[in-house]
Design a protein around this nucleic acid. Structure first.
Lengths: 228, 228
DNA sequence: TTTAAAATATGATATTTGTCAGCTTTTCAA
DNA sequence: TTGAAAAGCTGACAAATATCATATTTTAAA
């Protein structure tokens, strides 16, 4: 079993504030899992009872609305932690997490991580900071969802995806999402998302490589997304 | 000057975890202010450099979208604290706060509150919990904004307002909002909000007392908002 | 009190977005 | 390899919502 001290998650998450001793304890009690593409890390209404460290892969975090439509709230890349929110409020999860590709994750049980939260103020303050940043992002997303058109939200999402996941050497945005996933990120019907993507393609602003997307005219996309 | 130990904000916020000594220090360095209806507590882009304790009154927390439209993210009632988010991430505020009626607030400067956050783990853990709850609410709002119709959002908002602010003895929801404010809460044009309110009135689901609102048929409103 | 400005209200119309139907392409398991 | 299922695509139309115009009512300042 690998040591946490070497792990990519440690470098990029609040876990970097854990001491060597604390890491050894975490290493000892963690369990490692492979999650197949399409499988749940956890589901809405489930007691998670710990946090997941994502060593490899990407997952979508989503929630079902009362209308029966799915909304993707966030995409979580490897190097990050997921599940702290429910842990801290001591509630069942209000969100689901589903693997977008095959993932390698470690699960750290609640008791262990709570002990560290209580004892290590540098760690807990970093968790607090991360949560504050998430809250800021969430507020921004609320405003976008409420005030921007579907077209603007699509343009902005494409820019965000490129920023977050980068591009391959062929310029393709380096995350594979179905058209339905894209629709569920921007909060629209799948057909509408497809139609608007076709429109962007027709205007030579984007291009398809297979089903994945290349941004050809970033400036124009910014103009659509932000109005400048 | 009043002591913080007696204050309503202490009862209802994370400040209840401060010790007597800590409260005395806070009492000594706080400044008290009257904010008139319509005035800013703080504005987007401003360095807040502290937190506000709301002793009396209500404020709206809003953000301007790139389209130039205003979105109200939250309403903060007396007894609560506002401004921690920016303080913790050490950034200018991404939101504005505007008084909906005359307010009495206390301002606690950054250094003082940061000291308590570092030293008092019960306090900082409660702040973390509060932030986690805010994040959950924000996630729910994202889904509503993305997936529900304006009509559903209006119905849900009316129910939320009644829940949060209660009603007077005449059954009127005990918060005065302009039609524009209501539109900015649900994320629609003022005319659309007015039209849908008229429709609810025509169907005898709500009633106007002056410009304020009485919910006459809560069940029907729930059916619109949640589909049951 | 008077009066201008702001808020509320409603109609007409344009635009955006959702829904349904049907078709083609891709994927994946037998 | 092949054939069924899933995903992607497009058109036609319906529904929701925004925008603009204008009228009425309320508010607040002179």
């Amino acid at each position: 079993m690998n040591k946490c001290s070497q792990c990519i998650v440690r470098q990029f998450s609040s876990l970097k504030h854990l001491t060597k001793e604390e890491l050894l304890r975490v290493s000892a009690c963690k369990t490692s899992k492979i999650i197949k593409k399409g499988d749940f890390l956890f589901e809405e209404g489930e007691h998670i009872n710990g946090v997941f460290c994502i060593k490899d892969g990407v997952c979508k975090v989503s929630k079902m609305s009362e209308n029966g439509k799915n909304q993707i709230i966030n995409l979580i890349n490897h190097g990050n932690i997921i599940g702290e929110r429910s842990l801290i409020s001591n509630e069942v999860s209000n969100l689901s997490a589903i693997a977008l590709n095959d993932m390698t994750v470690c699960f750290i049980p609640k008791d262990e991580i709570m002990k560290d939260l209580e004892m290590n103020t540098a760690f807990s303050f970093d968790v607090l900071k991360t949560m504050a940043n998430s809250l800021k992002s969430a507020d921004n997303l609320i405003v976008d969802m409420a005030q921007k058109s579907v077209k603007q939200r699509l343009a902005e999402s494409l820019l965000n995806l490129k920023e977050k996941f980068g591009t391959t050497n062929q310029g393709v945005i380096d995350i594979h999402l179905s058209r339905e996933d894209i629709a569920n990120i921007i909060g629209t019907a799948t057909e509408s998302a497809i139609r608007l993507l076709s429109e962007l393609k027709k205007k030579d602003i984007i291009e398809f490589k297979g089903k994945d997307i290349v941004i050809k005219n970033e400036q124009e996309l910014e103009k659509i997304a932000y109005g400048f």
